[in-house]
Design a binder for these strands. Structure first.
Length: 950
RNA sequence: GCCCAUGUGGCGGAAUAGGUAGACGCACAGGACUUAAAAUCCUGCGAGCAUUAAAACUCAUGCCGGUUCAAGUCCGGCCGUGGGCACCA
């Protein structure tokens, strides 16, 4: 006996629609609950099974909340501006509005077939003039608040789409829309001052309950970093070059300045630059490169020395050369950096390539421990020491000596005497300590380091400055060592692989690592050297001290920089909201008067992006030409349109009062609904849509337009539904599943149940039609349960505890979005029902009601045909009776020495001794404790008994 | 490179606070019903050892080590996969 899901589902959907079952009222006695799922882009391909997952999940929650007595707002609408409709228009030469209408119809039919409890009376599309009127109005409020401005800026440009992109849309140098590599282009663009909200967006996160990973993504995107601006005087001109640095403590190590190719000095002082042609050529070259090429970190550094300009280091008056390179970004900090090659990877690579001096200002500082811990009661001595990492002439081994008294194994080391250099000292020490004479020193390592320890053999504390040399023996020719030396230490060859573990101190291990891996910048922490008043200080202290110095001398100040930049708000596209601004020769930019909104998007002869980089709207003369609202003279309209993100930056507000024609929404309505309680959307929107929407809302709040600062209380993200082959569904891979086919074959309830059961809601999951079949089978079994009904109106005794447990589990699981275990709990309950001869009417009604949020149609139908009660849409949610789920006996395991050896049945009120006795009496447990001494017995009530024997 | 996830049977995945690992489902195998198939129902199902059968035993949550009476869960170190950011000074 299978059920006729097609007619049942249709019947209930029509009933809900006709009766307005899910229409939400603004106001009333009930507590409000606002559930929002991101509205879809209605594309031509129709609903994706991924939509089904999130819509069903939030629908289940909405249904549960209603049954729990909340006034639930669960709306749906359409984000219908954007690329696909425009592509369609370009291809077919038709105005996109009709196509959008068709797509919306398809989507709506499919979403309705899913049986979602959306309040359709609040539906709208972002392309509705009544809606975008208010999008435009809000833009004007941004403008009036000084938060929208037009500026000539280097922007991200997609050569394929022929439009500018925001930084968010061009992340990683790739166009979000088409995947082409973007370039930079100088263009006049409308910008929104999002950067001035950077701190506010950061702080606001604390008020939300977003998932940590979403918060982290936003924090990273905003990219706050604290440091200092430092002004370098110029030698040739009366000007200062300002740089941003997070490490002002390394100022004594600055050996060059690097300007970004776009830096203003290159134009400003063109006449002072002797190689200006070379400079310009480099800049040209940079501009031709795509963003990806330019930021490829594996490529070699390039750059040009600016001949004719020199900077003065403010801390020591040193003259510093100035370079330009594309590794310095114009868009971050001041577009110029101070170069500290000794302690920065990029600067190091640049300095090595162009032979720029390297000055070490930080040294690693090792401190001995254990036997070599500094002893305050002993004197301190300073020494210059050389350490020699010497390789075997033919094998992969290194020369070491073992101290016979203490057992230490180290490289050959010794003090540098008189005016010896480290290399001479190393040779002398090697001969003395090992007798080997044919020594070839290859190089001295770039950086020195400190080691501090108590030297037991000399009974003093030592602070040594270590110079490291690397070399190899030419052959094993050796002289006889002194008797004293032979007694003191033994010569050893240590395998390269064993070196690190064998060497005695961290300092020697550090030497070995450097000797083996080669030179590189020292980016780890240490203490300052060669830095005058900073010498001996650690990082934090030195930064603080330097900041004081800079501020005192007026040559720098503490500042903060953000990765987040202003929002590039112009698009040279057709299918978007026209930006309601007019340009007048005399008055400049003048807003379109508010009473003239909406500024309707006109039809154009061609929808294609133009080759000159202007919006297609610029070709409609009668629309472009207008009069200035301010002076009445001839003026022209802005022809750029808004980005796709504009319409989605306030849509949740409109749902609160979608028909309002005097404001974006009535204030009372906005106050009533307040924040969105739960907002669900894809992880891909965690940094873009979500950041834009929060920014937009904060601006509205600051201007008194909305009553809450943070629009969303909690943000969650669903995982993707992948194809059966575990890859993203796509036409080209042939793994797309069409929800319509699933409705047809298995029904909406089965599809809903399956997608809730498929796995962790927050993780990606691969589609499996067999899994769907299994869920259909589950619903069939639920349906067949009706044949077991008796006339009882109370729970069956045998099932009562389990039913109450399931009520608890399902309620909690839906509230916490653990849908898969909710379905599983219902399956377990069904299995229990099936083992019964008969079930009561209340048994049946409860399992149906618990399943109702997930499979609403079949459960309502069964409830009706079996006359079990009023529809679930007007019933209260069942409450778990805790007193019924207390079990009187339970089974627990018994472990012996941590291994499970048996299990015993105990009653709930049994005391510890009795449980212990039972455990010790267990046959198999006896086998394992026989003849052994029981050391202790641990009884954890309701969990386990653990016996330890010897 | 940095940040965030994540790693459990043939598969999707369970396992509230460290407490009987593998719930539930799929697939598979055997059986019942049937002329037969489908559907349905019953049984089994991590690996090994063993086997007449069962019990028992050993090993198992990416790898190595640690804490603990007890580790999928906690700590340290690796490895793999996925995602985000990335010449951000």
């Amino acid at each position: 006996m299978n059920y006729d899901f097609k007619n049942i589902e249709k019947k209930w959907q029509e009933k809900w629609e006709k009766e307005g079952t899910f229409v939400a009222e603004n106001g009333g006695d009930k507590e409000k609950y606002y559930v929002l799922v991101e509205f879809p882009y209605p594309s031509g391909v129709g609903l994706h099974v991924g939509h089904v997952r999130s819509y069903t999940a939030l629908d289940s929650l909405a249904r549960l909340k209603r049954a729990q007595g909340y006034n639930v707002l669960f709306p749906m609408g359409w984000d219908s501006f954007g690329a696909p409709a425009e592509q369609y228009a370009i291809k077919n030469h038709v105005y996109p509005a009709n196509m959008v209408k068709d797509c919306i119809e398809t989507f709506k039919r499919q979403i309705k077939a899913l049986g979602s409890s959306f309040d359709w009376t609040r539906e709208f599309a972002t392309t509705d003039p009544e809606y975008y009127k208010w999008t435009q109005w809000q833009f004007l409020q941004f403008y009036k608040a000084g938060l929208a401005y037009k500026a000539e800026k280097e922007i991200n440009w997609c050569p394929n789409c022929k439009t500018g992109l925001s930084n968010e849309d061009a992340a990683g140098g790739v166009c979000e829309r088409c995947g082409s590599s973007t370039t930079k282009k100088l263009k006049n663009q409308w910008m929104l001052k999002m950067s001035s909200y950077a701190d506010s967006l950061l702080d606001g996160l604390a008020e939300t309950e977003f998932w940590d990973k979403i918060k982290i993504a936003q924090i990273n995107w905003i990219g706050k970093s604290t440091g200092a601006e430092v002004n370098f005087k110029m030698k040739e001109v009366e000007d200062t070059l300002t740089v941003f640095t997070t490490r002002c403590d390394t100022l004594f190590g600055v050996t060059a300045m690097v300007l970004s190719p776009e830096h203003e000095f290159l134009n400003k002082y063109a006449d002072k630059i002797n190689n200006i042609d070379e400079v310009r050529a480099y800049r040209e070259q940079t501009h031709k490169k795509s963003e990806i090429e330019r930021t490829d970190m594996t490529k070699e550094k390039t750059g040009v020395k600016i001949d004719g300009l020199t900077a003065i280091n403010p801390v020591n008056g040193a003259e510093i050369e100035i370079w330009m390179s594309d590794y310095v970004l114009a868009s971050y900090g001041t577009g110029a950096i101070m170069m500290v090659p000794a302690h920065d990877d990029r600067d190091y690579a640049f300095a090595k390539k162009f032979d720029i001096p390297i000055v070490q200002v930080i040294a690693k500082n090792f401190v001995g421990s254990g036997d070599s811990t500094i002893r305050p009661d002993k004197p301190f001595t300073d020494r210059q020491v050389v350490i020699a990492a010497i390789a075997h002439p033919t094998e992969d081994k290194y020369l070491c000596v073992k101290n016979n008294k203490f057992g230490w194994i180290n490289f050959v080391m010794g003090g540098i005497e008189g005016d010896e250099n480290p290399i001479e000292a190393a040779k002398r020490e090697i001969i003395e300590e090992t007798g080997y004479t044919e020594i070839e020193i290859e190089r001295e390592m770039e950086f020195v380091y400190f080691d501090n320890f108590f030297a037991r053999h000399k009974d003093v504390n030592r602070h040594i400055t270590c110079h490291t040399v690397v070399g190899r023996l030419k052959n094993l020719d050796a002289i006889e060592r002194s008797e004293e030396e032979s007694e003191l230490q033994e010569v050893m060859w240590i395998d390269k692989e064993k070196l690190i573990e064998t060497l005695n101190t961290n300092a020697h291990k550090y030497d070995a690592t450097r000797a083996l891996e080669g030179d590189g910048p020292l980016t780890e922490e240490g203490v300052h050297i060669n830095s005058d008043f900073l010498d001996g200080l650690g990082k934090e202290e030195a930064i603080e001290r330097m900041l004081e110095f800079l501020e005192e001398k007026g040559i720098g100040k503490k500042t903060t920089n953000y990765r987040l930049q202003d929002w590039i708000f112009s698009r040279q596209r057709f299918w978007g909201e026209p930006i309601p601004m007019i340009h007048c020769e005399k008055c400049g930019w003048v807003p379109v008067p508010e009473e003239e909104l909406p500024l309707i998007l006109p039809d154009v002869p061609s929808y294609e992006p133009t080759d000159n980089g202007e919006s297609p709207l610029s070709t409609v003369d009668e629309w472009v030409n207008t009069t200035c609202p301010s002076c009445g003279n001839h003026a022209v309209r802005e022809t750029d349109t808004m980005p796709n993100w504009a319409g989605s930056s306030w849509y949740w507000i409109r749902y609160m009062d979608p028909k309002c024609d005097t404001a974006i929404a009535n204030m009372d309505a906005m106050k009533y609904w307040g924040q969105v309680d739960l907002y669900n959307g894809g992880m891909e929107h965690a940094t873009r849509h979500l950041l834009y929407a929060r920014f937009w809302n904060q601006v509205l709040f600051d201007n008194g337009i909305v009553p809450v600062r943070e629009p969303f209380k909690k943000r969650v993200a669903h995982g993707m539904i992948l194809g059966e082959n575990n890859e993203k569904m796509s036409k080209s891979k042939g793994n797309v599943v069409n929800p319509d086919d699933m409705f047809e074959t298995y029904g909406a309830d089965a599809l809903r149940t399956y997608e809730m059961f498929i796995g962790d809601y927050t993780k990606d999951a691969a589609w499996s039609e067999n899994g769907l079949k299994g869920c259909k089978k589950f619903l069939d079994r639920i349906f067949r349960l009706q044949t077991k009904l008796n006339d009882d109106e109370e729970y069956s005794k045998e099932l009562e505890a389990m039913i109450n447990k399931t009520i608890k589990k399902v309620t909690e699981d839906i509230e916490t979005m653990n849908y898969n275990t909710a379905v599983s709990a219902l399956m377990i309950l069904l299995n229990a029902y099936d083992k019964q001869e008969k079930i009561s009417r209340k048994d049946y009604r409860t399992i149906l009601q618990l399943l109702n949020p997930i499979a609403p149609h079949v459960t309502e139908e069964l409830n009706e045909i079996c006359k079990l009660g009023v529809p679930f849409t007007s019933s209260d949610w069942p409450i778990c009776d805790e007193s019924k789920i207390v079990e009187d006996t339970y089974e627990i395991g018994v472990q012996v020495n941590g291994k499970l050896r048996g299990s015993i049945v105990v009653s709930a009120d049994e005391n510890e001794n009795s449980i212990k006795e039972k455990a010790l009496a267990n046959e198999n447990v006896i086998k394992h404790i026989e003849g052994k001494e029981i050391i202790k017995t641990i009884v954890i009530p309701k969990r386990i008994v653990s016996i330890v024997v010897k």
